[in-house]
């Protein structure tokens, strides 16, 4: 018997939650963060290590719908600052800053006045940055705010980690041999059509044909 393990891996890959499920998780995190802080916007950046860029993966509020996939250099502005130092930060009066990633902010169509940002760290790896822009004025507990933001950051880091793992697994399956890729795709389709038994019946029929064709069938 050959190939049993890689086909099993392919099936496992095919049955991973879809990219959309992970995106929905990240979206939910920025939606809740924005609501809790009464903020104008919240966003999650993923660090693309190949290009050294930060990529918008989820946005709630200002820029929602337009920014997903937009890239900025990883050292740009406050997000870059948080990424390189690994330290959370709260900033008020951003308008005082003549250089703060203004071009990047103008590209996004929104220039914030205040900003909170925290690195997204999973284990030893910094995966990206979570930002909250222009929260409500009540800032009686600055350090408490950071603690709360860190709780969201933990969730977001897990979400980003899952998203990246899924992307890597799919890419690996697609780079495998043709049969592995097909098996992965079929497993994924079956996983998503569990309510309709037609696909499963067809596969069972295919199995009975393959059993007869296989030279060392039991």
């Amino acid at each position: 018997m050959t190939g049993g393990n890689q086909y099993r891996d392919s099936v496992a890959t095919g049955m991973l939650p879809s990219e959309e499920s992970h995106r929905a998780l990240l979206q939910s995190i920025v939606d809740v963060a924005r609501a809790i802080f009464g903020a104008q916007a919240s966003s999650i950046f993923l660090l693309d290590r190949d290009t050294d860029e930060l990529v918008f993966e989820a946005v709630s509020g200002e820029g929602e719908g337009d920014l997903i996939g937009m890239r900025i250099p990883s050292s740009t502005g406050i997000a870059g600052w948080v990424l390189v130092t690994g330290q959370p930060i709260v900033i008020n009066d951003l308008q005082q800053d003549p250089r703060f990633a203004r071009q990047a902010a103008e590209r996004t169509g929104y220039v914030p006045k205040a900003l909170m940002a925290v690195p997204l760290v999973n284990g030893e790896t910094t995966l990206g940055v979570l930002q909250v822009l222009d929260r409500t004025e009540d800032r009686s507990r600055s350090l408490g705010e950071i603690d709360l933001l860190i709780l969201f950051a933990n969730q977001a880091a897990i979400g980003l980690d899952l998203l990246q793992a899924t992307r890597r697994a799919r890419a690996a399956a697609e780079q495998g041999d043709v049969v592995e890729a097909v098996v992965a795709r079929i497993a994924g389709l079956l996983e998503r059509s569990q309510d309709d038994p037609a696909g499963l019946r067809l596969l069972e029929a295919l199995e009975s044909v393959l059993v007869r064709l296989a030279p060392d069938s039991p």
Binding site: Q87, P88, I89, I91, Q96, D97, R99, F100, S142
Partner: peptide
Amino acid sequence: RGVDIDVAWFGGSTLRCTGNS
């Protein structure tokens, strides 16, 4: 002190920041 500090920022300006940094 790590809260609401007016720190040096680009172009001779300042920025009000909070953080262990």
